[in-house]
Every structure is written in C-alpha cells, then in structure tokens.
C-alpha cells in the first residue's frame, strides 16, 4: 500500500456569493454561446409550417437576450463583492500591484506552465496568473456587453439599453459590431476550455480539493502553507492598523 501522512488544514476560501457568481456565470456563458451560434447560423428545422404558428427562432433570441442581462448583472454583483468579500475575493487579487504577486507569476510559469521546476503549490486562493486571466475575462465581458447591447438597443426604446450604442459609429457600422461580438464568443469558448483543463490539472497535481471547493468552499491546505498564510494575514493586519493610527 502506497500511503503517506500529510498534515492538512481546512480553509474556507470561496464564500457563497463567489461560488454563486461562478456557477451562474458558467451557465450564462454556455447558454449564450449555444444560442449565439444558433443566431449566427440558424439550422433550418422546419419548412412546412405557417409562420404564424411558430416562434422558435424568436424564443432562441429571447433566451440569448435575457441571459445576457443575467450575465451582466452577475458580473456587476461580483465587482461589488470584490470590495466586501474575503481576502481571496478582493479586487487587489485581480490587479496585481505587489512584488509578491509577480514572483508568483514567475513561479507559475516555471512550475505549472513550462514544468522546468517542481515547486510546491503555495497559493490558497487563485494564483496570480489565474487572477490575470480573470481580469482579461472581465474586459472581454465588458466589451461583449457593449457590443451585444449596442446591437440589442435597436430593438428597444428603453433608454436603459442605449448606453452601449456609442460603439457603433466607432467601429463603422453594425456589421463590424457583430464581427467583434462573434470573435469574442470564441474567446469565451477558448477561455472555458483552458480554464476547465487547468482546474483538473491543479486537482491532479496539488491535490487541495479544488474541484470540491467550487461547490463547498473549503480547501484542504497543507499545514505549513496555511501557517504561512496566517502569519502573512496578521502582518498585513498590523500594518493596516499602524497606517490607520498614522492617519
């Protein structure tokens, strides 16, 4: 029997709102991609019915538009949570300004991407390469919302949706808006493929229980990594308290 004893500690990493955001977002992206491709090139399912008895293409478009709203407001909610969430959810994870985060980028490149070194996984939340990819995802989502709602605004008289129409004169005409929207769809697909693979990879190698943590929120972190994180957290708290006194 191959076995070894490992000192592990359970750490509550992903709060419920973060998990909620994640799965709603995943569902939205799947629905939007599928309906998006149907809208771009609809299959000819029927040909013998009267138009007045059928509305399936209208329904596909309705699902696409309705899901787009969920997608957008879900992201807005997550941005809010980036200011009130725990240390693994805050905005400063996603906009790396500290030297420690850039050292982590180097570690991920050497260990996980190129596999030149074999260092232990020491991130409890996201590593910095992951957070950077989510920053790119956010930018793509913003652009996708702008191009999507610019196309949608033409069928709506509510001023709520007119905010995105400035993109149309910028890109020339709506056909170009459509091209950008279509290309960005592929970005989301490729992102999903890579993202899912990396999730499997991390559970395969680091064995922190990443996949189950996306449901339950808790991760199994080696004792020494958890202790190091605890010390770092205390240090940060002391520093912020001192800064508070200075002010």
């Amino acid at each position: 029997m191959k076995s070894r004893k490992r000192e592990l500690r359970e750490v509550y990493v992903w709060e419920l709102p973060v998990r909620f955001f994640h799965w709603v977002n995943a569902l939205c992206i799947c629905v939007l991609c599928v309906t998006g491709f149907i809208i771009a090139n609809p299959p000819t399912l029927m040909s013998q019915v009267e138009a007045s008895f059928s509305y399936w293409f209208g329904i596909v478009r309705f699902i696409h538009f309705a899901t787009a709203f969920v997608f957008m407001f879900n992201f807005i909610f997550r941005i809010y949570w980036a200011f009130v969430g725990n240390r693994y959810a805050t905005w400063d994870n996603y906009i790396p300004l500290r030297a420690r985060q850039w050292r982590n980028v180097w570690h991920v490149l050497m260990t996980d991407v190129l596999m030149i070194r074999n260092e232990e996984e020491r991130s409890i939340g996201h590593n910095t390469v992951a957070t950077l990819s989510y920053l790119v995802l956010l930018l793509a989502a913003v652009l996708q919302c702008i191009t999507g709602f610019a196309l949608y605004a033409q069928t709506s008289t509510l001023p709520l949706f007119q905010w995105a129409t400035w993109i149309t004169p910028l890109l020339g005409d709506e056909m170009n808006v459509r091209i950008v929207h279509h290309l960005l769809t592929w970005f989301f697909i490729l992102f999903t493929v890579i993202h899912v693979y990396i999730v499997f990879y991390h559970d395969y190698i680091a064995r922190h229980g990443l996949i189950s943590s996306m449901i339950g929120g808790w991760k199994n972190i080696p004792e020494d990594v958890a202790e190091e994180e605890e010390k770092l957290e205390q240090k940060e708290r002391r520093r912020s308290r001192r800064a508070g006194h200075a002010v």
Partner: peptide, 21 residues
C-alpha cells in the same frame, strides 16, 4: 414573421425561397 418562426430559405432555388421565407 418567417425570421422569428425560424423559416429560412437556404438557396435561391429551393422550395423555401419559393414560399417567400
């Protein structure tokens, strides 16, 4: 109405084009 019903002509000489889809 044909668009919303998902009724499309696929070539210029098919039955659906003749129906005015």
């Amino acid at each position: 109405a044909n668009f919303d019903a998902g009724l499309f002509a696929e070539s210029f000489d098919d039955e659906n084009a003749r129906r005015g889809y």
